[in-house]
Structures are given as C-alpha cells and as structure tokens.
Write a protein that binds this DNA or RNA. Structure first.
Lengths: 119, 119
DNA sequence: AACATACTTGAACAATTGTTCAAATATGGT
DNA sequence: ACCATATTTGAACAATTGTTCAAGTATGTT
C-alpha cells in the first residue's frame, strides 16, 4: 500500500492521530462554535458585553458608556443578537439589552483570568 | 448646565450609567481581552485547539488531523503562539504543540455548552 | 397629523483576515 | 557535505470586517 500524500513519520507512527480525528465534532458544529466565539473578537463588542454584564442597558446608554456612535452600537448589537449572545426587550421607545445567559459572562471571566495570569 | 451632546433621556435619568462606566477596565485591557478571544473566532483555529485539547501534537499531525495544509497550520499556530494560547517544544525535527493552560480548554468547554443549550 | 426621540438599516469605504504558493530555515541521517 | 524531513516565513490575493453617513422605521407626545 502506497501513501500518495507526503505525511510526516510521527503521523504514521502515532496511532493517537486516528483517536483525535474521531474525537472531533463534525465540521458543522466546529463552524457554529467559531462563529459564536468570533463575536468576542472585537474590542467594541467586548466593551458592550462587559457593560451589559453589570447592568441591563438601552442602545443609547451603551453608546454613552462606550463612546461609540449609536449606529455603530446598533450594528454590533445586531451581531450579538443574531449569535444569541444578548437578548433584548422593547420598553416604549427604548430597547434594553442584557447578556443571554451565564455562559457569556463565564467566558469573559475566564478570559480575564487568563490575561491576568499569563504575565 | 447645558448638555452639548444629544443623549437619550434614560441616560440622563439612570445614574447607573456612571457606575457602569467606572466599572469598565481601561481600554488597553479591553483590547488585550478582545485580541485574545479573537483567536477563537476561526474554525481552523478552533479545530486545532480542539485537537490539542485531546493530545499534544506536532505541526504535521495537526495538518493530517484537520485537513489543512501544513503551511496554513503553521500560520495559525503562530497566531496561537503569539497570543499565548498554545505552548510548544521542539523534539528533533518535530515541534510539538499543546494548550497553554486550563483556561483555554475551559473557554472551549463553556462555548460548547452554550451552543448545545441555546437550541 | 405633525414632531421628537430611540433605534435600525443599507451602501460605501478602508482595514484586516486566512489561504496558497514558493522559498527559506532547522534538524537528523548517510 | 549532501539529502530528506519538518517547520516557518513572506508576498499575493480574494474575502470579510467595522465604521461612518444618510435614510429608514418605530414609538410616544402634543
């Protein structure tokens, strides 16, 4: 049996490679995961999320707190809404946003711990 | 006292806005946070990290496991190294990678829980 | 109905991203 | 010294991103 692709020796030797492959979730799930975590990869959104971790806030408040334009905030809130990272409720003219669940706060918390400890 | 900027009423009413502002970390810390979490926002990197959460692996093994080219893997490993998300050690011709600490695995775990529960 | 406030949206734009390909570097074996 | 293997790197490219600006929708007040 001839190997067509040029692969390294350790790959042929280590049978753990097969084990790892079969332990991976399907691509679809991996894409879902990365699209969710992608939302945390921007400083404007992190600022918004940190603010929301303290208090339920309307779009305009978030703009005042973060220093971003109302439009920029709204665009980012749409991203966060679509990815089910924040939830919202309308109250009169205002729309109030809050974190979707405890996992979102947990990720921010763990990430901050990592940053703090890696110095 | 006149307000120069056009801000919404709820911002003027709610004194919590000031509280939230002062609770936010400095911008520098927020950028650090987002740059760290940015690394989780790509399906190739997530695949690599999930693989590494199972086993220490060399570049070539990661390529075989993920189906990405060796070059693409190496470029992504550089990103993950720079952000202190993976660590590495050279052994002969191979360079073996592993997750930097338990926080990295924790973030992946929490994110997977979120995905699973939000359906 | 007319107006002000709160928010959302779409188009446009510069800036950044991830991959490929070719070339370079590093290590070990002969 | 030479060759093969393992990995890294740089340039190039299409694709995606986040912001701004202007225009839109939604709600409450008069």
């Amino acid at each position: 049996m001839v190997k067509s692709a040029p692969v390294c020796k350790s790959e042929s030797i280590g049978e753990y490679v097969e084990d790892v492959i079969s332990s991976l979730p399907p691509d679809e799930r991996i894409i879902e995961l990365s699209e969710f975590l992608e939302a945390f990869g921007d400083s404007s959104r992190i600022k918004i999320l940190l603010a929301l971790s303290k208090h339920e806030l309307c779009t305009c408040d978030i703009s005042a707190i973060t220093g971003l334009s109302v439009s920029a905030v709204s665009h980012q809130l749409r991203v966060l809404r679509d990815k089910k990272i924040v939830k919202y409720r309308r109250d009169g003219r205002n729309v109030f946003y809050s974190l979707d669940d405890e996992h979102v706060a947990a990720i921010l918390e763990t990430a901050m711990k990592h940053i703090r400890e890696r110095r």
